[in-house]
Simulated scan of single mutants.
Amino acid sequence: MSFVQSTGRDLRARAAGIVIGVLADAVFGDPRRGHPVALFGSWAGRLEQRLYRPSRRRGALFAVVATGVPVVAVAGVDKLCAGHPVGRAGLTALATWTALGGTSLAREGDRMAVALEAGHVLQARELLTHLCARDPSELEPPELARATVESLAENTSDAVVAPLFWAALAGPAGVIGYRAVNTLDAMVGYRSDRYERFGWAAARVDDVVNLVPSRVTGLLTVVCAPVVQGTMGEAWAVWRRDGGQHPSPNAGQCEAAAAGALGVRLGGTNTYGGQEESRPAMGEGNPLPDVGDVRRAVKLGRSVGALAAAVAAAAVLMTARRGRKAVQ
C-alpha cells in the first residue's frame, strides 16, 4: 500500500514538475550560454571522435553509450529523490526545461517573419539555418516561407510535444533520454558519406521514439486549427491523406496536419548538402505559404505546445488518481 501511495505522490510531483518546466521555458527560453543540450553535444562530439568507424556496429555503440550515460545519471538522481516530492518535482522541472525548445522555436519563427516582411532576403536565408539543415542560398521569399512553416511544424513535435510526452510517460530520465536521442540524430543522422552507416542507429532510434509523439502532434494540430482560422475538418482530411506520403515516418504527420490547419500547400524540392530531394505536395491545390502564414504557423505551434502541456500534466494526474482509487 505504501508503495502505491508513494507512487501517487511521485506522479503528482512529476505533473507539477512538467508544469514548472513549461513555465520556465515560456519565461526564460533556452539559456544563451551553458545550455545542457549544448554541453551534451560537445561531449558526444568528443565521444564520436573516439568511437567513429564507418560501420553500423560502431554507430550503435556510440548511440548506446551517448544516450545511456545521461539516462543512468538522471535516473540515479531521481531515485535519490524518491519520497521527496519537492526534489522530484524540481528534477522533473529542470529536465523538462532542458529538453523543451518551444519558446526559442517561436522566436526564430517571429524573426523570420520580420525579415520577410522587411524584404531582407539575405537575412531570412541566414535565419533559416537556425531552423533546419536545408540549403537556403538560392531560396526566394515564397520558398523561405514554405521552409519555415515546414520546420516549425516538424520541430513543434521534436522540441515540444515529444519532450512532454516522454516526461509524462517516463519522468526525468525519459525526457533526458529523448533529448539525447534527438540530439544525436541531429549530429550524425544524415545520409552523408561519413554518417551513412555510423549514423544509422541514431536515426532509427530517433524515428522510433518519435512515432507516437509525431502523431499526437498531428492530432493536437487538428484540434488547434480554429486558432489560426482553419477548420478541424480540413486539417484532419489533409493529415490523414498526406501524412504518410513524406519520406520521414514522422515529419509528414506534423507537416500535413499543419498544411491542412493553415490552408497552405507544403512539400516540393529541397536541397541538402548539394543534393536535391523531392517531397510530395501536402495540401495540394492550396496556395504556397507567405509571410502571413509564417506568423500563423508560429501561433499554431504555440497553441499546440500549450495544449500538449495541459494534456501531459492531466494524464499524469489521472494516472495518480487511478492508483489512489485502486488502493482505497
Rank of each mutant, 00 (worst) to 15 (best):
G243L: 03
D25P: 02
W239P: 02
G218V: 00
A115G: 05
E108R: 14
S278L: 02
D206T: 08
L61H: 09
V216I: 15
G171I: 08
L152R: 11
L131W: 05
G87P: 00
G68L: 09
G283Y: 09
A173P: 01
A13S: 06
A225K: 08
D135T: 14
D25G: 07
D290R: 14
R204M: 08
G233Q: 07
V311N: 06
G41S: 10
A38Y: 07
V175R: 02
T98P: 01
L169P: 02
L47T: 09
V175F: 10
Q275M: 11
I176Q: 04
E276N: 12
G273A: 08
M1D: 06
D206W: 07
V216T: 06
L220R: 10
G83D: 09
N286D: 07
L307I: 11
G252K: 00
T92G: 04
N270D: 13
A26M: 08
D30Y: 15
H246S: 11
T183I: 03
L219G: 08
D158E: 08
G177K: 06
P163A: 12
G233E: 10
A315N: 01
V216R: 01
G283K: 04
V212L: 15
F40Y: 15
A16F: 05
V69C: 04
R58N: 12
W239R: 10
T148H: 04
H130L: 15
P31E: 00
Q253M: 10
G83V: 02
A63Q: 14
V228H: 12
V227P: 05
R125T: 07
A15S: 14
A257E: 01
E277Q: 13
R322S: 12
M318I: 15
G29Y: 09
A63K: 01
A251Y: 06
G274Q: 09
T319N: 09
V327I: 10
A320P: 00
G171D: 04
R56F: 11
A281P: 00
A312P: 03
W239Y: 11
